[in-house]
Structure formats: C-alpha cells, structure tokens
C-alpha cells in the first residue's frame, strides 16, 4: 500500500509537468488547428534558461532559495515566452493560410533547430542542477516509507494554481474571449474586431510561459536536463492533451495526470524499458476509441 501511495505521488508530480506542457499544445491546436511540434523543445529551452539563470544568480551571490526561485521563474517565463513568440513569428505566421502540412513541416524543422542550437550553444552532455531538494517523509504503516519531497508538493501546487489561473483567463478575460472566438471562426472574429495575429501570438506566448514553468519544475525534480528531453516529453504531453480532449484546459491537466500515473505505475509494476511504449500505446488506444478525448467536443464536419 505504501509502495502504491509512493508511486501515486510520483505519478502525480510527473503528470503535473506533462499537464503544464499539454496546455500549450491544446491551446495552439484549439486556435490554429496545428500540432506545435516545437513546443516540447520550447519546454527544453525553458529548462535550460532556468538552469543558466540559477547558475548566474548563484554566481551573483543570490543564495536565498525562495528569492532565487522566484527570480528564476520570472526570468525563465519571460525569456521562454520570447522564444515561443519568435518561433510563431518566423515559422508559422508566414504559412498561416498555406496548406495544412506546411506548418507541420516548419514545426519539425524548428524542433530540429532548437535542439541543435542548444547542443551547439551549450556544453554537450547532460546538465545537472546544483540545488538538491529537501524531502519531507511521512512514515507509512508498512516498513516502506512514503517520501513526499518539497519539490513534489511545489509541483502539484504550482500546477493547481496555474491551471486555475489559466482557466479563469480563458473563461473570464477579453483575451480568453478573443481566443475562443478565433477558435470558432477566425474570419468572423477578425470581422468583429479581434486582432487575430495578436491573439495567436499571445497564445504561443502563454503556452511558452507554462512550458518554462514545466521546464523549471522538471529541472528541480530530476536535477538533470539534456537537449533531447523535449522530444519525448513533448510527445507525451501531446498525448495528454489529446487524452483530455484537445482544446480543453482542464482536460489537458487531467490527461497529463493520467499519462504521468500510467507511466509511473507501468515502470513500478512492469518493465521500465517499455514505459514509453505504454504511453504511446495509450495515445493510439485513446485516439482510436475516444477520438475527441475525455472532455473534448466532437468534431462535426459539414459537407
């Protein structure tokens, strides 16, 4: 039971990270109907920015952990948002009205560019974070002790706060209304005075900010990042977005949690080598049997 509980906690922490990235996929897919293939790599860039900001702050003498964390968070969110904006501006906006495969190809190209740029610009090999997270242990009934680290609590709390904030943003603010309008009919939204280009750019910026938070949390949780983490994590986050129903923010969060749990329990009870196979099979199964996901709206095609 304690083992189960431990895996549950691990899975929730991992799932929260997936969920944060999944929101970026789901928002972009909802608004322009494309898979932002480079989003996983934006997450990776965010993690690197967070790591470098950490090191820079330490070098500058900012050693108080809460202050450093806050500064790193702000820096990573702002700078990663610029990356997200640039990717949209360079690779997607010129192809806005092009045929559907074109932005997917530029997205794959951008993903390759980001990965290799980080590989070239930074030292090769994996990067471990200097900070070591403290842990709070709760003794279980059996001999096995359930350990909940502060980081895990931080991850889940951050996820809950950000998700609530985003849900409010989408449902209550003018930007959210503009986004939903663009999602339904871009031309009609433009005719009603919504600045479509700006709304889409802001969607990418928001997605990148969340990816930066996920990157920081990933860095704190695992302590090791590498330039290729974006691909696999990105695919799983996309799976999460599809699972929850594309276009739905609570859906992305739930999907992320489910994917995180599946992956953790599979590694704990079956074979760790095939954990990615489990996640990918899940994606196929979900898409085949619930093409609209858990909370998604069915897609109606008019002829």
């Amino acid at each position: 039971m304690a083992y189960f509980l431990q895996q549950l906690i691990n899975g929730l922490a991992l799932g929260s990270i997936y969920g944060l990235i999944a929101i970026g996929y789901t928002m972009v897919y909802g608004i322009i109907g494309m898979i932002n293939f480079a989003h996983g790599d934006i997450f990776m860039v965010g993690a690197f920015i967070a790591l470098i900001a950490f090191l820079a702050l330490t070098a500058l003498g900012v050693t108080a952990i809460p202050l450093a964390l806050l500064l790193v968070l702000i820096l990573a969110m702002v700078l990663t948002a610029v990356w997200g904006w640039t990717v949209e501006r360079v690779a997607y906006r010129p192809l806005r009205d092009s045929f559907r495969l074109a932005p997917l190809i530029t997205a794959i190209g951008m993903s390759i560019v980001l990965q290799n740029f980080i590989q070239v610009a930074q030292a090769r090999g994996s990067h471990s974070s200097p900070s070591s997270p403290a842990a709070t242990s709760c003794s279980g009934r059996a001999s096995f002790t359930v350990i909940v680290s502060n980081i895990q609590i931080l991850i889940v709390v951050t996820m809950l706060v950000l998700m609530t904030a985003f849900w409010l943003l989408i449902s209550r603010t003018a930007l959210g209304r503009a986004q939903r309008a663009c999602e339904q009919d871009r031309l009609m939204a433009a005719l009603s005075g919504v600045n479509v280009d700006r709304t889409i750019s802001l969607t990418f910026v928001l997605g990148a900010m969340l990816a930066a938070v996920a990157g920081l949390l990933y860095l704190l949780y695992y302590g090791v990042i590498d330039f290729f983490i974006g691909f696999i994590v990105g695919i799983k986050a996309f799976t999460a977005a599809v699972f929850g129903g594309i276009g739905s923010i609570p859906g992305a969060m739930i999907g992320g949690l489910i994917i995180g749990l599946i992956e953790t329990f599979w590694s704990a009870y079956f074979t760790i080598e095939y954990k990615d196979v489990a996640a990918f099979s899940m994606l196929a199964i979900v898409l085949i049997f619930f093409p609209t996901g858990l909370l998604g709206r069915p897609e109606v095609e008019k002829v």
């Binding site: 996309f238 095939y274 196979v277 196929a284």
Partner: peptide, 27 residues
C-alpha cells in the same frame, strides 16, 4: 487501427508506432 483517424491525429499516431517499433527493437 488508424483508419478512423484524420490529419494531424494520424500523423501523431504513426509517429508513436514508429517509436514503439524502435523501442521494441532496442529492448
């Protein structure tokens, strides 16, 4: 399995299949 899928969904599932085959070959 992917007969019912369309567009980008099809793309991502075929990608997943490609990765699954590679992971199986690896392990």
């Amino acid at each position: 399995p992917v007969l019912r899928l369309r567009g980008d969904y099809l793309a991502i599932v075929t990608l997943a299949f490609g990765e699954i085959i590679r992971i199986v070959l690896l392990n």
